[in-house]
C-alpha cells in the first residue's frame, strides 16, 4: 500500500530529515510511526501526501509511483488519502458539517449525497449534536473528531495521522485512537505518527521507530521503546 525505497530527504537548508528509509506497509495494516521530535515523522507524512518531493529514492502509494504523478493529478492522489493533523487544520469559517462536506465537494459529489453522508459520519465520530458548531466552539478532542470525519468521509483506502493526539489530554486521546482503530477494522490502512508512549504500548500494533531520520526498529505487535 505504501512503500518507501531508499528515501532520503534533505531540506533546502541542508537539514537531513530522512536518510535511506526503506519501509513497506501492506493493505489493512495499522502502523505506529514513533520517534522523538525532529526524527522525521512529519517529513514522511508530507512525502506521502506529495507535499514534498524526496531528494533521493522513490515512494509508491496505492500502487502509484509518486514521482510519476504530474502536478495537476496531485489533488486526485490526495483524495485517496485521508489525513489528520496535530493542529486539526479545519477551515475556521465553516461549521463541523461544512468542513466534512468540503472534502466531499472537492471530489464533485452530488449535493444529495453530501447531505445524507455528512450527518452519518459525524454521528459515527460522536458529534451528532455539533453539526453546526464552528471549530472555535469545539474542544480540541471534538475538533480532532471532525477532522477524522473529514478524512474518512470519502472512505479512502489509506488514512494517515500526524500526532493526532499531540494536543489532547490522555482520556480524549484514547477516544481518538479507538476511532482510528475502528476505521482500520473496516479495512482502511492506517499510519499514525506519534510520540504518545502509553498509547503505543497499550495498543500492541506494528511499530516503526525513527531516530534522526533512520528507521532503527520495525516490530509487529511492538511497544514504544526497545523491549528485551
Amino acid at each position: 500500500m505504501i512503500y518507501f525505497n531508499n528515501v532520503t530527504k534533505v531540506y533546502d537548508n541542508d537539514a537531513v530529515a530522512l536518510e535511506d528509509v526503506n519501509l513497506g506497509i501492506e493493505a489493512g495494516e495499522f502502523v505506529f510511526l514513533v520517534g522523538a521530535s525532529g526524527s522525521g515523522k512529519s517529513t514522511m507524512m508530507r512525502l506521502i501526501l506529495k507535499e514534498l518531493e524526496p531528494s533521493r529514492g522513490n515512494i509508491s502509494v496505492n500502487g502509484v509511483k509518486l514521482g510519476a504523478i504530474p502536478r495537476r493529478y496531485v489533488p486526485k492522489h490526495r483524495r485517496n488519502l485521508g489525513c489528520v493533523f496535530q493542529d486539526y487544520k479545519l477551515l475556521p469559517n465553516k461549521t463541523a458539517a461544512e468542513n466534512v462536506a468540503y472534502a466531499m465537494e472537492v471530489t464533485g459529489q452530488k449535493r444529495r449525497a453530501v447531505r445524507t453522508k455528512v450527518p452519518q459520519i459525524l454521528d459515527l465520530v460522536g458529534l451528532k449534536d455539533k453539526l453546526n458548531a464552528f471549530p472555535g466552539q469545539l474542544s480540541g478532542g471534538e475538533q480532532q473528531r471532525v477532522s477524522i470525519a473529514r478524512a474518512f468521509v470519502s472512505q479512502p483506502p489509506i488514512l494517515i495521522a500526524d500526532e493526532p493526539t499531540g494536543n489532547l489530554d490522555p482520556e480524549t486521546s484514547v477516544g481518538i485512537m479507538q476511532l482510528l482503530h475502528r476505521i482500520n477494522h473496516i479495512g482502511t490502512t492506517v499510519l499514525v505518527a506519534t510520540h504518545d508512549r502509553e498509547m503505543v504500548d497499550v495498543m500492541r500494533k506494528r511499530v516503526v521507530a525513527l531516530e534522526a531520520g533512520r528507521v532503527v526498529r520495525d516490530k509487529v505487535r511492538g511497544g514504544y521503546a526497545n523491549e528485551v
Partner: peptide, 15 residues
Amino acid sequence: KEIEVMKLVGASDTF
C-alpha cells in the same frame, strides 16, 4: 492557511 488545508484534502487548483 485555508487554501493550504483545501489543497491537503484534495481540492484542485481550479476548485
